[in-house]
Design a protein around this nucleic acid. Structure first.
Lengths: 206, 206
DNA sequence: TTAACAATGTGAAATAATTAACATTTTTCT
DNA sequence: AGAAAAATGTTAATTATTTCACATTGTTAA
């Protein structure tokens, strides 16, 4: 289990989510082709991913759901858990805070930030909103390692810089404005406009 | 310009956005390494993408910003424009509607849907909200070709099925629940939880 | 018991995406 | 004018990812 490919990590996260549902339904075992069907990928791909993490199923019975869930957890979760913050508590920020609240115990959103004075001090899904100026302090105090950026695009670079200064380790930028971070900070960017334009393109062509 | 790679399409969309900003600032030309810097990728990659769409810059002067914007438009936009709808006008739905309103003229959100009776008939960024039951009719009447799903995860499969029945051509699913569509419908799925788990993983390891 | 079947596990091939290397050309400098 | 520098355009190499093909092995059924 040397270096897991990025794509495999993404799929493992998704397998786990699907497996948790199966587990809740009382299934004890699952075949690679069943997982594949849910994720609309091939069974070979599922088996290869599982192979890469060193798990092995039972021939003819498939994979033990509980064991696989636990193993994926060992791989992708960190033991102590990771604290996360969200900068910008507009619609997108609230949507994300909403999604995560109470879902994954190992990843917790522990602070949100905004410039809007009327929001500061309020709670969003039980998480307190702080002023942007307090970011450095709060990130340090609460041992926050990951920041999610959902501010208006033009503010993204400044926010990212503040996070970097506060020694954050990873940034997930949801604004359409790319931000620059030093190489020791892990950066993931996702742009909704691009995704929609991509769908539009492939709808047109194929 | 045979088959453009998926990744190239995504980047072209992003180049255009960056170029529009440059154009607004009055820049007439831009070098591949300048574009690369903005998107944090390599200059070779930029040149290759541009090569693939058959544009050629001026040696020593770089690319003509306006021409490149227009050419990218010719490639990724459709001439007549494409109508889009959003199912589920919660936080995420509103965030997306917000992002798009007035931005790209070739892609317009022309309807939003929700189950919440109190939302039906109201307008969100100028776009009327209809009841889910009206989806088939509205998609047909308004010639909607792309649907964005931002309903609660458990409702995603039903919504997707309704869209497919209404002969939508592409779906962008933002719920963590994968949906099944026939092969003639282009499907793109994005899962925020997976992205955050991925960041958490790579923060931990590298 | 033995043959057929249905699943996993995996080396090897194929495909997709990125990066390196460099030829070419215009501009600038001496 | 000629040399150096700085950019593009592109072939080839490399790396990443997916898929194929098939060996292996429990399980079921004749």
């Amino acid at each position: 289990m040397k270096h897991l490919p990025h794509k495999t990590i993404e799929r493992l996260s998704q397998y786990r989510r699907a497996l948790l549902l199966c587990h809740a339904k009382g299934m004890t075992h699952i075949y690679s082709h069943e997982i594949a069907k849910i994720q609309h990928i091939t069974a070979v791909q599922v088996r290869r991913d599982i192979m890469l993490i060193g798990y092995t199923g039972t021939l003819r019975k498939g994979y033990n759901v509980k064991e696989l869930i636990d193993l994926i957890g060992q791989i992708i979760d960190s033991v102590e858990g990771i604290n996360v913050c969200v900068a910008g508590i507009g619609n997108l920020g609230r949507a994300i805070t909403n999604y995560f609240s109470g879902k994954r115990t190992k990843l917790s959103i522990v602070a949100v930030f905004d410039v809007d004075k009327s929001k500061i001090g309020k709670k969003y899904h039980g998480i307190e909103c702080y002023a942007i100026e307090e970011m450095a302090r709060v990130i340090k105090d609460k041992k926050i390692e990951i920041g999610i950026i959902t501010v208006p695009a033009e503010d993204a670079p400044a926010i990212s810089e503040m996070m970097v200064k506060a020694k954050i380790k990873g940034i997930l930028n949801y604004t359409p404005k790319p931000v620059n971070v030093p190489s020791e900070v892990y950066l993931e960017e996702y742009d909704m406009i691009t995704s929609l334009e991509k769908v539009a393109f492939f709808v047109k062509t194929d």
